[in-house]
């Protein structure tokens, strides 16, 4: 039986998320590499505690935010809709999600039964996609085209 982390990585990559499993101290360097070649004014990082303005957010190339939880058996992320942070996972062209390994749950039911589960949330599995034209999979339908998950291991 694979560990939760291993299972999460396999499932997340199967749905086209790009997972970067790193140690805590490598966080800044990982993000720097991911946003390379993108103008700084086109990057919004909600972890810096900035006010979130949705129309300017929609013009951003990259949004960076921290996830409430991860669900291993489907490679999903969970964002809390009670915090304005959720818009960072929706409006910019790309989303970089930061997830701590300690916030991984095995299944959706396990997460929903935990005290961490919020009342309003979105479970995100991979980048935005559609297959409405001839069942051909296209990424970036109305939400992020690309989803990077920076998974911080203990």
């Amino acid at each position: 039986m694979a560990s939760l982390t291993e299972q999460f990585i396999i499932e997340a990559e199967a749905v086209h998320s790009v997972v970067h499993a790193i140690r805590r101290e490598a966080l800044e360097e990982t993000i720097r590499l991911l946003v390379e070649n993108v103008a700084p004014e086109k990057i919004f990082r909600s972890t810096l505690g900035l006010r979130i303005d949705r129309s300017s957010l929609a013009k951003m190339e990259i949004g960076i935010s921290t996830m409430l939880a991860g669900i291993a058996d489907t490679g999903s992320l969970v964002v809390d809709l009670s915090s304005p942070d959720h818009l960072v996972s929706l409006l910019p062209t790309r989303h970089i999600a930061i997830l701590h390994e300690s916030n991984l749950y095995a299944t959706l039911s396990e997460f929903l039964m935990s005290p961490a589960a919020p009342l309003r949330y979105t479970q995100i599995t991979g980048p935005s996609k559609t297959a409405d034209i001839e069942k051909i999979l296209v990424y970036g339908a109305h939400g992020p085209v690309r989803l990077d998950i920076v998974l911080i291991q203990n």
Binding site: V15, L81, S82, K129
Partner: peptide, 19 residues
């Protein structure tokens, strides 16, 4: 759709930030 999980599953109630 033959997916293990759909791309977005939202649980909505009043009180969504910016909603």
């Amino acid at each position: 759709t033959g997916q293990k999980m759909a791309g977005y599953v939202s649980a909505l109630t009043p009180g969504i930030s910016g909603g």
